[in-house]
Structures are given as C-alpha cells and as structure tokens.
C-alpha cells in the first residue's frame, strides 16, 4: 500500500538530484553552483529518505535513515560554507564566469 507513495517520494528526490546536477554543470559561478548542489543534498536526499522510511521494518532502521540524512545535512552545510568562503577569498565574484 505504501509502495506507490515510496516510488513517488523517491522519484521526487531524484528530480531534485537531477536539477542539482544540472545546476552544478550549467551554472556560471561557484556560489550559484553551491546553491544548486545544496538543494540536491537537502531536499533530494530528504525525499529519498522519507520514501524509504515508509518501507522501514522497525524503528531501528527508521532511526538510521534519519541519522544518515542528518549527517549529510551537517556535512553538506559545513562544506558548502567552507567552499563559499574559499571562493570569496579568491575574489570569485558572482558575476565572473569561471573556465570549466
């Protein structure tokens, strides 16, 4: 009964990952690329975890799934800040187009 809902949520997560990947490849500078990437990490993984959580057998599995999402959020948020700060220091202004 929950399977269609899982498929829908995981599919939605994949859409965010696809959009994030497209943004990572297509957007012109570090800051907007980071913006695209963090959406994929936060929402994409969030929807996938939500979809998989519906299939979890017990609270143990559910807890691990949520922990995975939480760790990915912390790591992605931190590294995005660090990359952005390093880019800022290199005077990579948002308007400047970087060579691929």
């Amino acid at each position: 009964m929950t399977e269609p809902l899982t498929a829908m949520l995981v599919g939605l997560g994949l859409v965010f990952f696809l959009a994030g990947t497209l943004g990572l490849i297509r957007l012109p500078d570090t800051f907007s690329r980071l913006h695209a990437l963090t959406k994929a990490d936060n929402l994409g993984l969030g929807f996938i975890v939500l979809g998989l959580a519906l299939q979890a057998d017990d609270w143990n599995v559910l807890g691990k799934l949520v922990l995975i999402w939480a760790f990915a959020l912390i790591a992605a948020g931190t590294s995005a800040q660090l990359v952005a700060r390093s880019a800022l220091r290199r005077k990579s202004t948002p308007s400047e187009r970087q060579a691929p």
Binding site: F71, I74, T78, Q81, L82, R85
Partner: peptide, 12 residues
C-alpha cells in the same frame, strides 16, 4: 563553521 563542525561531529 569549521571550528563548530570540529566540535559537533566528534562525539557522534
């Protein structure tokens, strides 16, 4: 951010 990260993550 990094200093906080270095304090939040180690216990886990």
């Amino acid at each position: 951010v990094l200093a906080s990260f270095g304090r939040v993550l180690p216990p886990m």
